[in-house]
Amino acid sequence: MSINFSKIVRPSYTIAEFAKHVVIVLVCVALLFPLFLMIVMSVKDKEQVVFSFFTIQPPFHFENYLVAFSYISPFIMNSVWMAIGSTVLTVGVTALAGYAFGKLEFPFKNVLFWILFAKMMLPGIMNLIPSFTLAWKLGILDTSLPVILFCAGTSQPFWVFVMRTFVAQQPQELFESMRIDGANELQIFRYLAIPLLRPMLALMSINVFVSVWNDYIWPLVTIQSFDKRPLTVGLAYLTSAHPGDYGMLTAGYVIAALPLLVLFFISMKQFIEGLTAGAIKL
């Protein structure tokens, strides 16, 4: 057991340290440039987008936001529930499976792992009609279930692999010592694996959440009731009502991104806590 590393070593502001910050800041600037551009674009009208794409100049069309909000707002909560449901289920089953594949021994383990592994390599663009037919036969159309269940079914292979790698890297003694202490597998999962995996679970949650958040065609075809549909449907209406108006559309994107940003700050906190918890365990 040791205390957090960062607290021992005092930050020293040498040239090397400064250089690190410079590199990372440059990377961040490059990564964030599209976001900056998106915000700038969101207050432009059609003409400004075409004639001055990269420049910032008045007049600023803040009314874009009002219009975009009126299209998106009725659907935001639907998307929130759908994304939360999908994330909880998907992350839950993935963590369980990842832990089991990483640290437990059981027959056919490799076969089962291969089922998931191979699926990663299969392109899925032909799946729409077969998937829809399945959802229809199951009688779950017009609910959030097709989105949630199919998300849990399709988005986990890579992440099971991630979880397995992280669990497997941890020393076996850690798990054995808990078994010696009399914990059952569920307790080990809950009190050891989960904290260890926390950063990856946070990262995975963000990924799953964003992908459900941005999904358009699948919820569109499986949810026919207008008022149960997700916000991407609102965005599609917005695009269709203002064709070629990228300013208006990006205003919609910005609004759609705000809930995601909130989520990021929450999960990033988890990320940090996870690291600390992990460090103490070690």
Partner: peptide
Amino acid sequence: QPLDGYKELLDTQFVS
């Protein structure tokens, strides 16, 4: 339904 997704929606609605 905007044209983006029109055919997909129609195809699946015919299926069901």
